[in-house]
Write a protein that binds this DNA or RNA. Sequence first.
DNA 1: GTAATTGCAAATTCTTTGCACATAT
DNA 2: ATATGTGCAAAGAATTTGCAATTAC
Lengths: 150, 150
Amino acid sequence: MVDQRDVIDAFRSYLRDHNLPVTNQRIAVASVVLLSNRHQTADDIARELRARGASVGQATVYRTLELLVGSGLAVERDFGEGYKRYESARDEPHHEHLLCTVCGHVTEFRDERLDRMTALVAETHGFARHRHRLVILGVCRACQSGTTRR
Amino acid sequence: MVDQRDVIDAFRSYLRDHNLPVTNQRIAVASVVLLSNRHQTADDIARELRARGASVGQATVYRTLELLVGSGLAVERDFGEGYKRYESARDEPHHEHLLCTVCGHVTEFRDERLDRMTALVAETHGFARHRHRLVILGVCRACQSGTTRR
DNA sequence: GTAATTGCAAATTCTTTGCACATAT
DNA sequence: ATATGTGCAAAGAATTTGCAATTAC
């Protein structure tokens, strides 16, 4: 699915390079976030860890997520749902998201025109652009056909 | 600036049509939101009302914002800042936003290509598109030149 | 007059933080 | 050994809600 334990090792290296202890909790959280292609909430992650029998306190989940984002191995997303989601960075370039308003499923897509377009618009308005965010809200195929997942 | 009291009257009509009392608080909140072209937070609105000597409880501010959004006269925005913003709908069509990450200033722009592009992408992924949201994050002209406003 | 609103304070939801105990190096 | 992490519970921030007092119609 994803390039196996490599990402976890990358996190281990990151921790060592920053003189931060490699704890079981950190590796457990990293595994859930980095070895998945889903866009999970802090709660999703805590629940998944509990299901795996490796419960981690939610404070630790949040603190580890901060490290993962800081390392560049994970990315934080805010789709305006009232909470944040986290996804593995997977060396992938910037991409946009389709969010199903029924089941919460997220699909990704990439469109280079957006990069150019937003850069141009920003310039027109005198803005120094950092980045942009596009979310398309709708109903996914599964939910349209009644086969709601999740 | 905006088409004067008309919008407020429209809100009065909305309230009457729904058998909802036209209270001073509701009109006060509506005035702050509808007669401005800014993207204000609930707190901005409460503060502005206090400054005008017409303090309104924050619960009432939130409850009135819900009515304003429900009436279609105001629009709710979530730029991922951790709180929501509200702007007057002003009969304007869908538009996108540039958000200054330094001062929080918001500028609007419209680009029809986005409508087509997002519709096409959604279709490609089997999504029934409702709407989309694009935010360009950067630093506005004023903040770049050190003339930070707000 | 009566039903609906208002404002306060308490409750909620997501996230962060303080601190005694536990753990990695 | 010792600095750092962990978990719990309390604290925060934005928003919502219950309820007695108040107001619109």
